[in-house]
Design a protein around this nucleic acid. Structure first.
Lengths: 238, 238
DNA sequence: CAGTGGTCTAGACCACGTT
DNA sequence: ACGTGGTCTAGACCACTGC
């Protein structure tokens, strides 16, 4: 891990420990540079990370301060990463039932969403997930074999995300999600035990690796009383 | 505007023009530094901006490339900024009916959400918004008078966001949003013309200025057939 | 091994806030 | 006027990719 990441981590810990209180000023950059025996530019890169995670605010001419609204921004941020399995690990028992598992050719629309040729086959996976044995979400995924390989129904019963990271050694980059509400359909009623016409929260997402290749296009449906999505937005530099 | 921002803007334009095609390599950093008559570190700061907006990908040892999935990431990003008014300007006619406008003391829970003292009064505003004269969203907002001042019912009929930016000269920083689905309630039926038990998409958000002060805590309800939320997530540096 | 991006430095000057 | 963060430089070395 690079120096600026290590320093960011240490400062982050001090904030989380309460060594620096919300609203309190951090030492000035020159002093931090001295403390960590490095240059000011490196300190700035560390502060960039903390700023992007909303842990600190910076006022030119005045100083750097712990975000006055800092509570546990880390929790919010980290809740966006990884899949359901990782999110709830340690908090609840996640299990998965694979309803459908198939390798087939994509429709023209699907290959367009995946940014692949129509000749590249895809995994077509339909899974029902449980939280402490209660049905929780229903997911249809399409993944191109040009990116994801050796996926089995066995793997789909566990965490596909950790398979991608730990077995295929691929690095997940970014995701575009569209969140909407819908009425429950037949599958929602059958599998999520929704009532007819209950609301459902749907998330359609396209996820890419750091090299830009898309590895999943999926639709997930949640019971409206068992899920919400938290997002954190940083505004642009005007 | 600083040098690295100007350079980022120019490179961005070349990508949007198609001068650099998706998947194509950009000139190497040393060459860009030469072309713009600057140092490599400055070019890197420019590339950081483009990378964060998902316009480029970087491969150590190989090169910098236009994101192969680049379509119009800018559109997605920009859709997150500003309020409804700004988002639809030029595309549809936005109008607003103020259903309630009051200055009062906050409840303990509200002052906690706003991170203010219970003695600081708040604006309590309830607005119905229309898109081309069709009811579109219903918003309850709470704003502290310690941050927002001189707000009138007149202003609430237009864009509160532009008032904050252009009149109060405050800079909007970040937002935490919780998105969920719900069943239509009486107000949804009355104002959004939902049917009983239609799904509703609800967004609860807390918005801060760049100095960390919270200026709005609000709940917005959308008709399920007239709105979805698009979010873009960048994964963390592992 | 050559070429690329990633990190880091020491020092300089600028822009902004505060006093 | 002074102190803070913001930007920028020229040059160095490291880490990784691909031939």
């Amino acid at each position: 891990m690079s120096l600026y990441q290590q320093i960011a981590k240490k400062i982050r810990q001090k904030i989380e420990n309460g060594d620096y209180q919300p609203g309190e000023a951090l030492p000035r950059q020159a002093e931090l540079a001295n403390e960590f025996n490095t240059s000011r530019v490196t300190i700035q890169k560390s502060l960039d990370m903390l700023f992007n995670d909303n842990l600190i605010i910076r006022r030119q001419g005045s100083g750097t301060f712990v975000s006055p609204t800092y509570s546990s921004a880390l929790d919010i941020i980290s809740s966006q990463y990884g899949g359901t399995t990782q999110l709830f690990s340690g908090k609840a028992k996640v299990s998965t039932k694979v309803l459908h598992f198939e390798i087939r050719l994509p429709t023209p629309e699907e290959s367009k969403k995946l940014n692949t040729s129509e000749t590249v086959p895809v995994y077509d996976i339909y899974r029902l997930r449980f939280l402490d044995n209660e049905p929780y979400e229903l997911t249809k995924s399409i993944m191109p074999l040009s990116v994801i390989t050796n996926l089995t129904e066995e793997v789909a019963t566990g965490s596909i995300f950790s398979f991608i990271k730990n077995e295929l050694h691929l690095e997940i980059g970014s995701a575009v999600r569209r969140i909407s509400a819908d009425k429950a359909n037949n599958d929602d009623v059958s599998y999520l035990n929704c009532r007819n016409d209950d609301p459902v929260l749907q998330v359609s997402q396209t996820i890419s690796l750091t090299d830009g290749r898309i590895f999943e296009y999926s639709h997930t449906r949640h019971r409206y009383d068992k899920g919400s999505i938290v997002v954190f937005n940083k505004m642009p530099i005007s």
